[in-house]
Design a protein around this nucleic acid. Sequence first.
DNA 1: GTCTATATAGGGATAGAC
DNA 2: GTCTATCCCTATATAGAC
Lengths: 218, 218
Amino acid sequence: MPLSEPAPMKTRDRILQTSLQLFNEHGEPRITTNHIADELDISPGNLYYHFRNKDDIIWLLFEQFERRMDAALQVPERRAPDMEDMWLYLHLVFETIWEYRFFYRDLDNLLSRNKKLRTHFRRIIERKVTTAAAICQGLVDAGVMNATAEDIAALARNIAVVATYWLNFQRIRTSAATVNQDSDHLALGVYQVLSQVAPFLRSDARQLLHHISREYLT
Amino acid sequence: MPLSEPAPMKTRDRILQTSLQLFNEHGEPRITTNHIADELDISPGNLYYHFRNKDDIIWLLFEQFERRMDAALQVPERRAPDMEDMWLYLHLVFETIWEYRFFYRDLDNLLSRNKKLRTHFRRIIERKVTTAAAICQGLVDAGVMNATAEDIAALARNIAVVATYWLNFQRIRTSAATVNQDSDHLALGVYQVLSQVAPFLRSDARQLLHHISREYLT
DNA sequence: GTCTATATAGGGATAGAC
DNA sequence: GTCTATCCCTATATAGAC
């Protein structure tokens, strides 16, 4: 294989890539297998040579997403994270959601017609909640945060809700055109999540967070 | 018309009622006009005598929902609400969402195929945000709450996100069977929203909120 | 107002040639 | 691996009789 040209992408991978792009842009329910084939200038028959059915494509995209999200939710273990760690960490989570945002747009539909998807997605949600709780507990142990166990439990659930649905929320509020300026929306989501944590922080940590927000927002 | 028997419901109203019930239970995309007609033991043709199309049914249900939600979002003007007011107020919002929950399950789908729906729903969301901000500002003015304008802005957005998506979130987490114990889920949603406000409250108001939560949860 | 019958359209998926 | 042709099914919606 000549090194001068990059190897052309295999059809199977092109189908996955294009499906993801179309799903994200228009929503999965409105993209048919024919649309995908059209966009790629291949025949529907060819598409079905590579994939059993539409759900098969969706499942493979989900596996990509799951690997990415599992990696993103990896907690840095060595030490209690500082505010900047938290910001970057959350931003990674939001980026992952953004890249596979079509799952979030039609969650109910997708999960109710595919049991395996449902089980796996639920695991991701639970992991969001427990990871958020673990980080908060770490901050408490490090003396940076002041919260009871009950506070942390409720806070972790709310963090997960906002992290999960922020992009949907913004999508409703802003016109479709505006939504496509990615980075702003992600940063604002990170800000929203961290502003839930802020009131529990010790004064100096809260100041630092305030400072970081100003830096990263616009 | 004899008073001894209640007037039988008009077919048109029965269609609306049954549609709402089926949409809520199974999700709007999976309920066809034929399903609705079947459930009512009428013919599809009859259904189309009463409604131009499926979107027409959905729009009329939305109008009901909008009236209910507009009423629920009415702020009690006379005085700064106490914690129990807040609890009951929020519970009313959650009850309204619960009764028309199918809209929330497939929001993206519904809003992107119907512009009028999109405009009106967006108005409701904006109203949620501004109402939440107004109430918080009222609490600050009354000396019950301690928060900057920036705090309130972020808090109001987060309140709206949790109020909007809490039921969806719980639906993913718990098995379908569990979800149908209405009241628990609503109360927990109210709790989640108010726990966002709690850390900004003066100590005595926070205690009161804590107390009320214990009373209403389970 | 209600029914039966049917038109229309589109999406998912397969068969078989190349 | 890829294409063409086609089948099947389901959903929306209408026509016309009663």
